[in-house]
Amino acid sequence: MEMILQIIVFIITFSVMEFMAWFTHKYVMHGFLWKLHEDHHKKDHNSWFERNDTFFIFYAIVSISCFYTWSIGAFYLGLAIGLGILAYGLAYFIVHDIFIHQRFKLFRNINNKYAKAVRRAHKIHHKHVGKEKGECFGMLAIPWKYFKN
Rank of each mutant, 00 (worst) to 15 (best):
Y59F: 13
A60W: 10
D53I: 02
I64P: 03
G130C: 02
T69K: 11
K42S: 14
I72A: 04
N109Y: 12
H126V: 15
F14I: 06
N111G: 06
Y146K: 01
V28T: 04
G84C: 04
F75C: 05
K133P: 00
K35Y: 14
L5S: 10
K43E: 14
S63N: 03
V9I: 11
W70N: 08
W48K: 15
K148H: 05
V62H: 03
F55S: 02
I85F: 02
Q6G: 10
L5N: 12
G89Y: 00
H126N: 13
F67S: 05
H30Y: 09
F137R: 07
V62P: 03
V95H: 04
Y88D: 07
F104M: 10
M3L: 11
D53N: 15
I57K: 11
L140D: 04
F75W: 08
H25I: 05
F99T: 00
G73H: 07
I12S: 02
A74K: 09
Y68T: 01
Y146R: 00
I124R: 15
I110H: 04
H125S: 07
V118D: 00
N52W: 05
F56M: 15
G82A: 07
E38L: 15
L36G: 01
V62K: 00
F93Q: 07
K116E: 07
A21Q: 14
F56R: 13
L79M: 12
F10P: 03
W34L: 01
I7S: 02
K26M: 10
M1I: 11
N52S: 15
F93W: 12
S15M: 11
L140E: 01
G134W: 02
S71Q: 07
S63F: 00
C66G: 02
N52R: 12
Y68F: 14
D44C: 14
L5E: 09
Q102N: 13
I4A: 09
R51I: 09
T13M: 04
K123F: 09
M139N: 15
W22G: 05
I72Q: 02
P143A: 04
K35P: 09
A80D: 04
H126C: 08
I64H: 00
I8P: 01
H122G: 01
F55T: 01
K145Q: 14
A141C: 10
N111Q: 11
Y27A: 03
R120M: 14
R119E: 08
T69R: 11
I61C: 11
K127W: 12
S47Y: 08
I85A: 03
K105A: 13
F104Q: 10
K145W: 08
T54A: 15
I4K: 08
I11R: 02
N46F: 07
G138W: 00
V9D: 10
I57F: 14
W70C: 07
K123L: 11
Q102P: 02
V118T: 05
N109M: 06
F107E: 03
L90H: 12
